[in-house]
Design a protein around this nucleic acid. Sequence first.
RNA 1: GGGCUCGUGGUGUAGCGGCCUAACAUGCCAGCCUGUCACGCUGGAGAUCGCCGGUUCGAAUCCGGUCGAGCCCGCCA
Length: 641
Amino acid sequence: MRGMSEPAQPSISHEAAFGPATPYRDVTCGDLRAGDEGRDVRIAGWVHRRRDHGRLHFIDLRDRYGLTQLVINEAESPEAAQVASRVRPEFVLQVQGTVARRHAGSENADLETGDIEVKVREITILSEAETPPFYINEPDAPVDESLRLRYRYLDIRRRPMLERLLLRSKLVQAIRECHHRAGFVEVETPILLKSTPEGARDFIVPSRLQPGSVYALPQSPQQLKQLLMVAGMDRYFQIARCFRDEDLRGDRQPEFTQLDLEMSFVDEQRVMDFVEAMIVEVSAAVVPDRPIQQLPFPRIDYHDAIERFGSDKPDLRFGMELVDLAPALAAFGETGFKVFDEALAAGGRVKAIVAPGMGESSRSQIDELVSFVRRFGAKGLAHVSVAADGTAHSPIAKFLGDERIAAIVKTATGQPGDLILIVADADHERVADVLGRLRQDLGLRLGLADENVLAYCWVMHFPMYQWEADLGRWHATHNPFSGVVPEDEKLLVTASGDAYKPSHADPAGRARAMQYDIALNGWELGGGSVRIHKRALLERSFALQGYTLEQMNELFGGILEAFDYGAPPHGGIAMGIDRWAALFSHQTNIREVMAFPKTQSGTDLMLGSPSLPELEQYSDLGLRFVGVEPAVEPGKDKAAQ
RNA sequence: GGGCUCGUGGUGUAGCGGCCUAACAUGCCAGCCUGUCACGCUGGAGAUCGCCGGUUCGAAUCCGGUCGAGCCCGCCA
């Protein structure tokens, strides 16, 4: 027996253990090159395509790694030819043969393995296959997405989906490497968690051992990572699955993945410095050919982002900034145009964006823009078109007069051929929101954004609270634990002096959070903050949000208690892995970078989830189904039953 | 909760009140073919137009409902 001090020797070599060889194959379909000529190999994979010339068969054999051409010559191996003639696309084969150089002139430059082929002696059909419901060997052929979802395992066989999953794997790998190098510890936190009151609707899991009680699936590991800071972990990260039971969108799934990280003894600057460096490294590792627009990332104050771009996640790949027309108009006194005058009189805004080259837009194109802004609550959309000769034309010229139109064109710096689009509203947030959405939409439609560029930017100093008029309380704009900018700490008071009687007039409304979001090409990639780590301040913040001490202890008792045992100053961020992977893959839909996503109605077309539980399961859980509608298994037609 | 779009052989589309006994491409099946690589050639099978109802002399086509998918508003700290 070996002495205890001797290092254990693996029973098999590194190459044998870690290499591609298995009992079924020596190499993969992507391995063989001209230098392998003469090798006798076994190879296995799926039939990608077959070309049957009667007594000569070609089969392209496919696996994750590539495509290798097999040749079966009836004259040389009649038995193999027999098998080859009944082989069909997507059959799984194992073959044995000799690597040979292809005939001069018949090399295929499109394939990595295009210089060689395998002359097959023996074919074994490992698995036959039905004709697939859509093309697997033609990556560009369009396929209805619900079909792809129903047969996701076939969709993933197709090159584009496979490549996106490979990219995603690379992304997560780069993230992990970067964090480990920076001393972060990867810690897993529970999926069966406790319901949190704020934020999105929770997914609920009934408990059998505690009948009547429920777990909630985490919307994010927020409280746990803060507890890990109290635990002295110092630097934590996790590739964490998160769950939110809200309506779905192209960029929102009921379960999604976040890079969640937290650091101790930091300020905003320190967290952002790490995250920025990490993002730069990860981008370089995953998409090395895509340039980052600006380094260091621009840091934009929330209010500036709203004023200039009408968005807290501005797409900086193009300009088209919002222009305030009020000063230009004010020079002439009241405009005589009710829409503008009333908006300004009520403390609102009149702002514009310039759509380059849209000056010749037809009536119906303008109407389309008007209905676009109406969807977001704008009452209308005024426009001034600048003709090729520089003269301005506008339906509202008859109200404003030529001097004001000229002033608008000058202020907005409208060039010949441009279209100036103007929104006026008493609600300045609505003006910003509508123009921001219009800007993003037009920017992409007009091709102003370079598809290849990665324009990361920070948006900072969000307001701590938003006023919720109907509930009569303040509401944390992002995370309820977000810290307040130190010089604004004194603002966290109510006007009345009663901590539990918030009003819209409270100075707290002006307090800025130590909150930072990271945006990429117009998408919110992530957000984080330096947290409040002192119990007293946290209690004050929660009071402003309308919680009594009792409620606070009920909901956040665990973390509040933890803070009594020595909490380090800490902060962190959470980033959407799915969105990041989608942006890296030039996709506008995160389903395209998820192996098994759900539909917009939250169903899984492949597995048929969610499904009805057995009645026993209810009774085990102490539950009774009182019913809504007779539920139907997803994917099945009610009428067909 | 709401708005919009889509649903036609296996797949992707065309047809949008009678010319449809539903067209095209591809796939599938059979036969032929020894250098292809989206192989080729010849022939064949395959959909009653998501489902239910209505309007009409007549519906894939118009209307209503419903199911499913997508996009969006609300929602998503």
